[in-house]
């Protein structure tokens, strides 16, 4: 017996659709959209009434490896930051916008985006054609070489980290992250569509985390 949480590749997710054991599956780009929130330490007290302020970093970090995918992520970064700010304010927090006062905030919020291109090949044909009176086989009158087409499944991701600013150690390589919101989906559609889905993912992250409310 087993109980497994598996991350399936986008390619595998599509292949599963054509297997009879799994007769239904995503039909539209939005069907692949998913929002995850992760609490790093279940004992962390989000309800602590003394935690009221946050500082939102003014830059969206692009995590994409330039060696594998274009780093020009065509989403409206200022709109994303503004949406995170709106959600935090609606939850009852007060922003400390001044960078020189960031170390006085209770939480530091970092926003990043990623794009991954998953290339794979589809082979078809190559059965050889008619091989004369002996039947089907390689050679003969007509040789059909196998055809290869390359497909790309592009996945986009937006991450919102809430860091416990009180526990940041100057000079340390690690940050005391207490909450992570992650929106993921196919990086397909118009720029407007991608932007809207990214903003919806941000709203959903906070909606499914009611414990963050002041």
């Amino acid at each position: 017996m087993s109980n497994k949480l598996i991350r399936v590749s986008p390619i595998m997710a599509l292949l599963l659709l054509i297997v009879g054991c799994y007769p239904i599956g995503p039909e539209f780009v939005e069907d692949y959209d998913a929002t995850y929130t992760i609490v790093n330490d279940l004992s962390f007290d989000f309800a602590d009434p003394t935690r009221q302020t946050y500082h939102l970093a003014d830059t969206v970090i692009v995590l994409t490896d330039p060696g594998t995918s274009p780093t020009d992520i065509q989403i409206n970064q200022s709109a994303i930051l503004e949406r995170v700010r709106t959600n935090m304010n609606q939850l009852g927090y007060t922003e400390i916008p001044e960078e020189n006062l960031a170390n006085t905030a209770d939480y530091l919020i970092l926003v990043s985006v990623n794009r991954t291109d998953n290339y794979f090949n589809i082979w078809w044909g190559g059965w050889g054609g008619w091989g004369g009176w002996g039947g089907w086989g390689w050679g003969g009158c007509c040789f059909f070489p196998p055809m290869v087409s390359t497909q790309n499944i592009r996945v986009g991701m937006i991450l919102v980290d809430i860091v416990d600013a009180r526990e940041i150690t100057p000079g340390s390589d690690t940050l005391p992250e207490v909450w992570l919101g992650l929106g993921e989906g196919l990086f397909r559609g118009s720029q407007q569509n991608i932007n809207n889905r990214a903003l919806s993912a941000i709203d959903q992250m906070f909606r499914q985390s009611p414990y963050l409310t002041r």
Binding site: N3, K4, R7, V8, S9, A13, Y32, A34, G185
Partner: peptide, 9 residues
């Protein structure tokens, strides 16, 4: 299945 993850039992 949700997005690109799968919970399997």
């Amino acid at each position: 299945q949700v997005g690109f993850i799968e919970i399997k039992d």
